[in-house]
Design a binder for these strands. Structure first.
Length: 252
DNA sequence: AAGCTTAGCAACCGCACTTGG
DNA sequence: GCCAAGTGCGGTTGCTAAGCT
């Protein structure tokens, strides 16, 4: 059976968008609004796949996008949300007004991953990377550039104090063995309970609250965990990140 | 200065989910 | 309930600029 292709590939442009294409897309959406991405390219006079138009609009052309560098505060929000949600980039993006899932995903892979590794935190599990000198370790980082980078990032102050002990361990190990780099290892998976632990921390120590409530993704009154209901009575609807609950960004 | 490597990011691809007939 | 179309999402690729040798 199979699904029909989303567009006629033989007649569509690929690759980087031109200024003219951007202008056409923006003009069309301003005039007609978003919706029906499949028919949009034809209607807008674009030789592009509908998905491509959607992506271009969402990731680059939307007027409410916040371009430019991520702030330290945004970094920490992303790290915290990722520790709960994993690679749910769209959900994370929903918590950061003006940022897109693609942007956050790229930023994570290029900046934050390295930042966490330098802190001695496993970006996948958010648990401290233990000093496993007795275990087989493969390290590919040996040049002076990476050592320099590790040192400078260790000097950064970290407002969230997310993994202070791990950070200290990493930097002390660096001091002892400046040539020893532990960034990339082959190691058994870390413990799941370490990953789950911060949830209760962000829920103000109420370990029996559900993830949706602690993240402000669910209305506490409609949730069975009970805690959210209490909190929603007493709070004004802000979640642990200080963002208004329900303000889930551009898609909602 | 030239060639090579790396980092950053825009865009594509394919699968999953949702919706409507 | 089933099926096809439409849309959204996450992973991956490829291009470009910057940095290094």
């Amino acid at each position: 059976m199979g699904r029909s292709p989303c567009c006629e590939k033989a007649h569509t442009n690929k690759g980087a968008w031109t200024k003219e294409e951007d202008d056409k897309l923006v003009a069309y959406i301003r005039a007609h609004g978003e919706g029906c991405w499949r028919s949009l390219p034809k209607a807008a006079g674009l030789l592009r796949c509908g998905k491509s138009c959607r992506l271009r609009w969402i990731n680059y052309l939307r007027p409410d996008l916040k371009r430019g560098n991520f702030t330290e505060e945004e970094d920490e929000i992303i790290i915290k949300l990722h520790s709960h949600l994993g690679n749910k980039w769209s959900l994370i993006a929903g918590r950061l007004p003006g940022r897109t899932d693609n942007e956050i995903k790229n930023y994570w892979n290029t900046h934050i991953r390295r930042k966490l590794l330098n802190r001695g935190v496993d970006p996948a599990t958010h648990s401290p990377i233990k000093d496993r000198r007795d275990e087989p370790t493969i390290s590919f980082a040996s040049n002076s550039k990476e050592i320099k980078e590790t040192k400078s990032s260790a000097e950064l102050s970290f407002a969230g104090n997310l993994e202070d002990s791990a950070d200290a361990a990493a930097s002390s190990a660096q001091e002892r063995c400046p040539d020893l780099n532990l960034e990339l290892r082959i190691s058994p998976p870390s413990h799941q309970q370490q990953r789950a632990e911060p949830i209760s921390r962000f829920a103000g120590g109420k370990s029996d609250s559900c993830l949706e409530c602690s993240l402000g993704l669910k209305d506490g009154r409609n949730c069975g965990c009970g805690v959210g209901a209490i909190e929603s009575e007493t709070s004004v609807g802000y979640d642990f990140l200080g963002l208004k609950a329900g303000a889930l960004g551009y898609r909602s």
